[in-house]
Structures are given as structure tokens and as C-alpha cells.
Design a protein around this nucleic acid. Sequence first.
DNA 1: ACAAAGTTTACTATTTTGGTCAACAATGGA
DNA 2: TCCATTGTTGACCAAAATAGTAAACTTTGT
Lengths: 145, 145
Amino acid sequence: MKLSTRARYGTRALLDLARHEGEKPVQLKEIAGRQNISLHYLEHIIAPLVRAGIIRSTRGARGGLQLTRQPKDVRLSEVIQLLEGTISPVDCIGNPESCERADTCVTRDIWCEMKKAIDATLDSVTLQDLVEKQERKEAPLKQNA
Amino acid sequence: MKLSTRARYGTRALLDLARHEGEKPVQLKEIAGRQNISLHYLEHIIAPLVRAGIIRSTRGARGGLQLTRQPKDVRLSEVIQLLEGTISPVDCIGNPESCERADTCVTRDIWCEMKKAIDATLDSVTLQDLVEKQERKEAPLKQNA
DNA sequence: ACAAAGTTTACTATTTTGGTCAACAATGGA
DNA sequence: TCCATTGTTGACCAAAATAGTAAACTTTGT
Ligand code: FES
Ligand code: FES
């Protein structure tokens, strides 16, 4: 029950992108540098997000990445789903055929509830939430003043 | 974010044990047979449960396994914890040192909430719940009569 | 044309998972 | 006492997933 580095790096990259977005696209290289993630590896991680249309990319000189939606409209549930492939603790949730006698299996119901709990948690958080949280954490002096 | 077979097999084995408990110990061989799990593999899976004292084992002729507590006092959270090692989606929940700058990391907070959600779900289910659920599923005719 | 970006494919090393096997230890019964 | 039976342990192994590297390729602005 571990999250892969893809999910963690990807989320951080997306958060980084959200925070540094402006008129101009943000280069993958910058994100990799700031987040201390291998550029080559990050390319692989970002790919599914681009394919899914969460990120728009423009190649060539002065190219880079941009979010296609506002951060408040990007839920972590969707992000993790794309990065992790699936969040199901067991395969038979998605396709009951993977286990024999899935219809009489009682543990399956429990794993199913687990998935729901995870989904609900991730669904309640948007990229905007993360951005705001980060800003609060990075400006503690202002809070105390 | 997948559960290992150890967690799934182990839970099923424990459920099987709870259902077939009587005066005499239940043999690992029987459980393996009923649940269609490799005996040798199941030995390894059961081991941490014995070590943790959830199961009492007696060796030798006519030996076998017995629960040390009533099924209603065995929570899945504890079982999965033992079988899976940890339920944390990331290491830095348990030991914050594993990530650098864990104190300013906002994604960590999210993963932490995920863990809480999972824990809560598993904590709300006991072995007894599973047994009852199973019995309801296996006797649908009686329900309809 | 050229340099600067992202894209894609191929490859690799390491770790985790999911087992198997065999020696061993303890126990009850003949 | 000895043996069959049952659980315990540690060594070992193959396959898959994970994490990462490298390089060729495509697109685009200047
Ligand atoms: S049906 Fe898949 S775990 Fe039981
Ligand atoms: S501190 Fe561990 S994920 Fe950020």
C-alpha cells in the first residue's frame, strides 16, 4: 500500500507548475530543478498528464507546460488516478473476473470500502488547496506578524 | 497502492480460521486447502500473526492454529498492519526523516490524511463482522424463506 | 538553418513480490 | 522410545514492478 514515486513526484511537479504559472509556459527543466527530480524521469511522469489533457505542452524554443484548467478545478483523485494507474487495493474491484467467486467474497467488500475512503480523501483536495497550503507554510513570519 | 497477496491471503486465512474454530486446533493444511493457497506460502504469511499473538499455534501431532481472542476483538487494522508491514502511502509519515524538508511539504499532509482514511476503514471492521457477512452470503436461501 | 524545447522508445539496475524447498523443532501417540 | 505429524525457520529463486538513464526524434521560435 505504498504510493509510487511517480505519484509523489507527479503531484509535486503539478503543484510546482500551478505555483509558477504565468503568461509564459513553465519549462520541465525548471520544475525538475526546483523539485530536485531527474529531468528524464520527470518526462515520463508528466506524459500521462499531458495525454489526459490536464497539462498543455508546447514544444520548441520558449515552449513549456501550462495547466489547461484552473488549479481549483484539478482534483487530486484525478491526478493520482492518472499517475498511479489505479488506486484499487485489489484488481477485482475494477473487474470482478480477476478473482474467482468474487460474488461471494466478503473481503472484497472491505477492500472496496478502502478504495472509497481513499477516493473520497483525494477527491476533496484540489491543486488550489495545495497551493494555498504551501503559501501559508512558506510565509510563517507574515502569519505571526 | 495495491494490497499484497500476503494481506489478502492472510485475511482470508484468518477468516477461515475464525469460521472453523472449535475445540480442536485447525490445521494450516486445512485452511490452505479450503482457501486454495499454497501451504508453504501460507506458513510465511501466518508467521507474523503468530508472533504478534493473534494466533496460538501448537505443533506436533493433532496440532494446529487457534485464535487467542474472540473474532469480535480482532480488528482488520491490526491484521493488515501485521501482514502488510505498514499501510502508509509514504515512508515520511512514520519517520519524517526519510524525506528532506518534510516539515514544509504540503503533499505529505495529504498522504497523511489518506492513511487516516484507510486506517479508519479497517479499524471499523472486525473478524466477527466478516464471519457474519460470510454467513449471510452463504445462506441466501434462508434469508429468502 | 539552428537551437531549444517536449516526445518517444529502448534499455538497465534495483527492489519487491510471490512463491518453493528443505532442514529443523516440538508434540502426541503407538 | 520412536515415529508420524504438525508448525517454524531460513535459504533460495523467478517474475514483475519500480525507478531511472540514454538517446533518437519532433516541433517550434528566431
Ligand atoms: S474477490 Fe477479489 S479479493 Fe475476494
Ligand atoms: S515529506 Fe515525504 S512526501 Fe513530502
